[in-house]
């Protein structure tokens, strides 16, 4: 009977947990079929998520990076930043909508300009990592090189080149190139298979987390862990 006493929503804390469980069941009701109950909670969810973001936007960004520097540090030119940014909000207006493209253009330009550093830092070390794979016992090796390392290096280079071949488009794939590209697509399937397996695991974990909440917090059943 103690369990019933504790289980029922008789304290603030328990009411909260029950509301959490209600939200969970409301969303899961779509698995049975589309219904107004689900629609209600779906719209509530979207509204809450949008409303929540306002706090961090206003205080962590607008206050911290705009109002404070103008007020406390007297950086007056910052005052122009928000009015310029507000041009974005003309986007739905037919007559003045184009001014929002000035801001969007600046943002796109900024990201384009930042791409050069990303290209260098993200891809060139990967290029260097691939082209420094030794294919035979090197003459001046430091440390021991295992046969398995060499085999894996061969595999690495072959797979990388054949998949790259598959993704070329400006010349006709014929003969050996065609076969390489076909093998490339098969190798690609291995990579996609690992993504498949990992994605399934991720999705299951999210569901498990939910069931865990229902069992542990709502029904108060001690769960798992051996």
């Amino acid at each position: 009977m103690d369990w019933i006493q504790e289980f029922l929503p008789l304290s603030v804390e328990r009411i909260n947990v029950w509301i959490g469980a209600l939200c969970t069941f409301a969303i899961y009701s779509i698995l049975y079929r589309e219904n107004p109950f689900y629609r209600f909670f779906e719209h509530m969810y979207i509204g809450l998520a949008a409303g929540y973001a306002l706090g961090p936007y206003l205080v962590d960004v607008i206050y911290r990076y705009w109002w404070e520097p103008i007020r406390a540090d007297g950086i007056w030119w910052l005052a122009f930043v928000v009015p310029f940014g507000m041009y974005l909000y003309f986007i739905y207006n037919e007559k003045y909508g184009w001014v929002s493209r000035l801001v969007i253009g600046s943002l796109i330009g900024a990201y384009a300009g930042l791409t050069f550093q990303a290209f260098s830092s993200r891809y060139l070390p990967q290029l260097q990592g691939a082209l420094s794979k030794v294919l035979w016992y090197p003459p001046n090796a430091t440390g021991e090189i295992y046969l398995s390392t060499l085999i894996n290096n061969w595999i690495f280079v072959i797979i990388l080149l054949s998949v790259l071949t598959y993704f070329t488009f400006s010349f006709e794939h014929r003969g050996a190139v065609k076969r390489t590209a076909l093998v490339g697509r098969w190798f690609l399937m291995i990579g996609l298979g690992t993504i498949f397996g990992n994605t399934v695991m991720a999705r299951m974990a999210l569901l498990i987390g939910r069931v865990y909440y229902l069992l542990d917090s709502w029904l108060m059943i001690r769960v798992g862990g051996g």
Binding site: L127, Q128, A130, L131, S132, K133, V134, L135, W136, P138, P139, N140, A141, N153, V157, L160, L161, L164, T165, T168
Partner: peptide, 19 residues
């Protein structure tokens, strides 16, 4: 194609000269 050639050439060079 440039990336592919660099990888192929680089791997051969690494094998000969050391990584």
């Amino acid at each position: 194609i440039a990336f592919g050639s660099l990888i192929l050439g680089g791997a051969v060079l690494s094998t000969v000269l050391g990584a």
